[in-house]
């Protein structure tokens, strides 16, 4: 039985009818075609599905689509504006903060959340801030560098 929801995704209002059991991550990926949000576990352990819900990083596999009713969702697809990369995207690119790229969208959005709360995080704070996101490729060192580089740019 479908439930009607209205959600703002990347600045665009969406009215959809969804099954109550549909996970938010599947709604974004399958119904809206926003496949930049990845699924690595569906048990809220890996962080690959991280999005911003009303500006806060959340794991979109831990929510049903119906729980996003009335919320603003931002996915990785919305970070590059008018052809310009977000400083966090630049940081990941310049510092080689990714290899296979699968964890990257979630990492970038977690870093976004972290930097919105702490403009000048230490290495320790970055490592703890990204605790919810697993990366099997990079060993995290270049991710730390990426976030530090983004923080520098964002502080101006």
């Amino acid at each position: 039985m479908g439930v009607k929801i209205s959600v703002e995704v990347n600045g665009v209002g969406q009215q959809s009818e969804v099954e109550p059991r549909l996970l938010l991550v599947h709604y974004l990926r399958e119904d809206l075609g926003l496949t930049g949000t990845h699924v690595g576990c569906e048990t809220s352990m890996c962080g690959a599905c991280t999005i911003l819900l009303d500006g806060q990083a959340v794991k979109s596999c831990t929510l049903f689509a119906v729980q996003a009713e009335g919320c603003k969702v931002t996915t990785i697809e919305d970070l590059k504006k008018d052809g310009t990369y977000h400083p966090i995207q630049e940081g990941f690119w310049e510092e080689h903060g990714l290899q296979c790229g699968f964890c990257t969208p979630g990492m970038i959005l977690s870093a976004y959340d972290l930097l919105s709360r702490n403009k000048n995080p230490s290495e320790e704070e970055i490592r703890h801030g990204l605790e919810g996101n697993l990366c099997r490729c990079t060993g995290y060192q270049h991710i730390v560098n990426a976030v530090q580089s983004a923080a520098r740019k964002m502080r101006g």
Binding site: E77, L98, F102, P105
Partner: peptide
Amino acid sequence: IKRKEDPRFITGTGKYVDDIK
């Protein structure tokens, strides 16, 4: 040199198997 493959990954436009419909 920064990688040529990265623009697609940092923008969420890579194509993994599950992204193909």
